Computed example of a mutant assay.
Amino acid sequence: MPFINDKLKYYADERNRKEIEEKQKVPDVTDSPADQPIRKIQTRYRFDVEEVMKRLRKRILGQEHVLKNIENMLKIVWADITDSDKPLHIGLFLGPTGVGKTEIVRVLAEAIHGNRESFCRVDMNTLSLDHYAAALTGAPPGYVGSREGSTILDKEKIEGSYSRPGIILFDEIEKASPQVIQTLLNVFDNGVMTIASGEETIDFRNTLIFMTSNLGTKEIQSFADNKFAFLAKQAIYFFNPGNWGKRGRETVLDHLIKRRLESSFQPEFINRIDDIITFNWLERQTLFEIIDLLTEQINRKLLRYGCQLELDVSAKEFLVEKGFDKKYGARTLKRAVRKYVQVPLAELLIKQTAREGVSYIAQRSIAGIEIKIMHTI
Rank of each mutant, 00 (worst) to 15 (best):
A133K: 01
Y143I: 13
T137S: 05
E117L: 14
Y132Q: 07
S128L: 08
D85Y: 13
F119C: 03
I112V: 11
I158V: 07
V99Q: 09
L88D: 05
E148M: 15
L136C: 06
G160Y: 05
A135V: 01
D85I: 04
V99P: 15
G91D: 08
K101E: 10
P87K: 13
E159D: 02
L127P: 09
E159P: 02
I76M: 12
V107R: 08
F119I: 01
T82L: 14
Y143N: 09
P96W: 10
D80N: 15
T82F: 14
V77E: 02
T102Y: 09
I112A: 09
E148P: 11
A133V: 05
L94H: 12
S150D: 03
R147P: 06
G114M: 09
T126I: 13
W78H: 15
R147W: 03
K86L: 03
L88R: 04
K155L: 13
Y162K: 11
A135M: 01
P140G: 09
H131K: 01
V77N: 03
D130F: 15
D85P: 00
I104P: 12
L88G: 04
K157M: 10
H89G: 08
A135N: 03
L153A: 10
G142L: 11
G138Y: 09
D83Q: 03
L94G: 02
G149F: 07
E110H: 14
H89F: 06
L92N: 09
L108W: 07
M124T: 11
G114L: 08
L108P: 01
G149I: 06
S84F: 12
N125S: 05
N125Y: 04
F93P: 08
I90Y: 13
D85H: 15
I158K: 05
V122Y: 14
S150I: 03
D130K: 13
I112H: 09
P140V: 14
L153S: 13
I76D: 09
L136F: 04
K157N: 11
L88I: 08
H131V: 05
S84I: 02
R121C: 04
G100A: 09
D83V: 00
P141L: 13
I81R: 02
E159C: 00
G91A: 14
V107K: 01
E159L: 00
L88N: 00
Y143L: 11
A133F: 07
T97Y: 11
D80C: 11
G138T: 02
K155W: 15
T82W: 14
D154F: 05
V105L: 00
